[in-house]
Each structure stands twice: as C-alpha cells, then as structure tokens.
Amino acid sequence: MIERTFRPMWAFVFRDFHLTRRYISWVIVFVFYAIVNSATIALIGKSQNDFRLTLTLMLGALLWSFLSAMYNEIANSISYERWEGTLEYTFMAPVSRLIHLSGVSLFAVIYSVIRTIVILGGLVLFIQISLNGANLWGVLAVLLVASLAFMGLGLIAAILPVMSPENGAQATNIVQGVLLLVSGIYYPVSVLPAWVQPLAYLSPATYALEACRKLIGITNPASTPKELVGAPLSSVLPELGILLLMGIVLIPLGLFIFHQAELWAKRTGKLKRTG
C-alpha cells in the first residue's frame, strides 16, 4: 500500500528535481529576473521614502512570485509532458491522478519555497530594508496553507493543455493574469472597478496577502522602519481558515474537473502529442 502510494508520488518529485537540475541555467536566469523584477517594484516605495509602501510592494512581488511559480509548475506540468512527448506514458502508468498531481504539487511547493527564500535574500540585500520584528515563520505558514488553494487552481488550469494541445499552455496565463489583477497584489482591492471587486474575494491570493501584511507588521501603526511589529499567527486565523477552506474545496474540485477532461481527451484522442 505504502509502496503503491508514496513511491509513485516520489517518482514525480525525483523526475522534477532532476529536470530542474538539468535546466539549472534556466532556473538561475528566472530567479535572477525575479529578484530584479521584485527590486524594481519595491524601489518605487523606496523612492517615496515610505517603508510601508516599500514592504507592501516587496511582499506583493514575493508572494506573487511564490504563488505564480507554484501555479505554473502544476498547470504547465501537462504542457511540458506534451512538449517532451511523455504524456501518454505518464497517463498509462498505474498511478491515480491524485497521486500523480500530488507528486507534481509536492515538488512545486518545495521548489517555490526555496526559490522565494532566495529571492527574499536577494531583495533584502539589494534594498537594504529591515525585517526585524516581522513574523517570517508565520508568513511561511500562510504560504504553505495558501499553497493548497493554489494547487487546486493549478489543477483546474492544468486541464487546458489536456484539452487543447495547441493553445492550452498559453490559456493558463489568462487565468494567472486575472488572479494578478483581482487579488490586490500591489494595491488595495478598493481601487479596482466596483464590478471586479467581488472577484477579489474569490482569489486565495487576497487572503494570503492580508494575512502576510499583518504578520510582517505593515498594517501595524507601531511599526517603524527599523523595528517592525509583526502580528502573531493567531491573529490571522480567519484568513488561514478561509485559505484552508478554499484548498479543501478547490483540490477535490480540481481533481474532479481534471478527471472529466482526461476522459474527454481519451474519447477524442487529445492525449496524443500532436492532438
């Protein structure tokens, strides 16, 4: 039982680890770009001499970098297999889709956490901003809980490359772009057009950001540029609860939708490399 569950799940971590290792130059380039991109955004706050704005922008860039990296790893795992031509072999292996996608997601979370820590280190060194007093362990906990909901979204988006060999991979970017827009990554949700604002409350990123701002101390009036007053984890339990609930709903929903898409692809012959 354990062998049939954990060994196949580990197979995906093994595969993705070695692929990342073989494409390490790409990884370095993307991480470098993410540091530079995040720095240019955070420097807008620095130019205003406003440490709260700097931290808000920095947090937004970091959180988005984490969530989008994870989302991409999951959503594009299918397009990558199409590209390599291995999709049929993965789909005919005696592995349930739950185990398959859990393995992909497990690597995605590990990879995204490490990537985010490296980017955070690069940013702190470059921008010279103090994180003293910020509850960074709390932030990590929020990221991990938010990962569940983003896994679910990734699973839903992963059906696009299953259904459309030609355009599916590109279509996952539309979902990602909408999340970026509505979640208030760099601005308060209140500045969005009124009809868009309700969408913000459907995005897990909105709650993850709210919680992280409290944990870092951005929203606390007692925080100073040299000493932040981060909130304890207990103060963000409502956000954690919502994120957990979203994960509990979105993961089974994602698996269900993925299963339906797989059945459709098997009826129409879309699993084949060229469609």
């Binding site: 062998e3 049939r4 060994r7 196949p8 580990w10 197979a11 093994f14 595969r15 070695h18 072999y89 993965t90 292996a93 005696p94 592995v95």
Partner: peptide, 13 residues
C-alpha cells in the same frame, strides 16, 4: 534517471 522514474511510477524499488 528516465528508467528510475518509470520504475518508481510502477512501484518498483
């Protein structure tokens, strides 16, 4: 790496 990945998918040590 390819063969070990495939083997693990099938539950092989």
């Amino acid at each position: 790496e390819n063969l070990l990945y495939a083997a693990q998918l099938y539950g092989l040590e």
